[in-house]
Write a protein that binds this DNA or RNA. Structure first.
Length: 227
DNA sequence: TATTGATCATAT
DNA sequence: ATATGATCAATA
């Protein structure tokens, strides 16, 4: 049995190997190895699973706007799945701010920067299963191929275009085939300054980019098929 | 019951 | 305030 946190990986492959070492463990076992208490449910600890895996794999703990493993250029994402291994939730990627609209280039966007290389770690997320009993699944590295990148880019350009033009009334979670824009804030009443379609100052609720569950479901299936 | 909109904790 | 980590829960 190795000690935790695991040694710092020097390559994405090593990181994948480290994540593979954790696969199969129950969250309670992993938390115990790290000396971290497990919450009874995730209602008041929504980021528990993600933070637990970050600590186990030695991610540089911070809230900076950079990948979890800066030296490797790898982003770590946990993926809640049901007993059959199907995705239960969408995946938050990053916030969409007015000032980011200056960056209209896909290649330099925060979204693409985060999704270039992702280490996905499936974790049982069925609410009826106690958090400590949930198991960590087999991890896999994902670098979007040309097709996937084109699909995401198309959605991103549609959504950013509406944001940039201040079409806030037209925005909703219904837009985007694989990527969507949804509220991302502490409270539904949270507001931030923006410019509407007439250039007038308005207050709007903060939003973030999310990958739809059916998109991550497809990644998971492709991985399981071994391609 | 799948999905959209709302929300929670913590660090900086 | 806004970034990180997401899941909860009301609605369609």
């Amino acid at each position: 049995m190795a000690t935790f946190p695991l040694p710092k990986a020097t390559t994405p492959a090593e990181l994948l190997g480290a994540a593979g070492f954790v696969a199969g463990l129950r969250l309670g076992e992993l938390a115990s190895l790290l000396g971290i208490p497990v919450p009874p449910d995730l209602r008041r600890a929504k980021g528990f699973v993600g933070s637990l895996l970050e600590r186990a794999l030695g991610a540089s703990a911070s809230s900076r706007a950079v990948p979890d493993f800066p030296e490797l250029g790898v982003e770590l994402k946990t993926l809640p799945v049901d007993a059959s291994g199907h995705c239960l939730e969408s995946t938050f990627v990053c916030t969409a701010e007015a000032r980011d609209l200056e960056i209209v280039e896909w290649e330099r966007s925060r979204l693409w920067t985060k999704l270039r290389c992702v280490l996905w770690v499936p974790v049982e997320g069925t609410r009826a299963v106690p958090v400590e009993q949930r198991r960590v699944g087999a991890p896999f590295l994902w670098q979007p191929d040309q097709t996937e990148q084109a699909l995401l880019r198309a959605d991103w350009e549609l959504l950013v275009s509406l944001l940039a033009r201040g079409k806030f009334d037209s925005l909703s979670g219904h837009l985007g085939r694989h990527l969507q824009l949804r509220p991302k804030a502490a409270k539904g009443s949270s507001r931030r300054a923006a410019l509407d379609e007439d250039g007038a100052r308005v207050l709007v609720n903060p939003k973030g980019f999310y990958l739809r569950a059916r998109f991550t479901e497809a990644l998971l299936r492709r991985h399981l098929l071994g391609s």
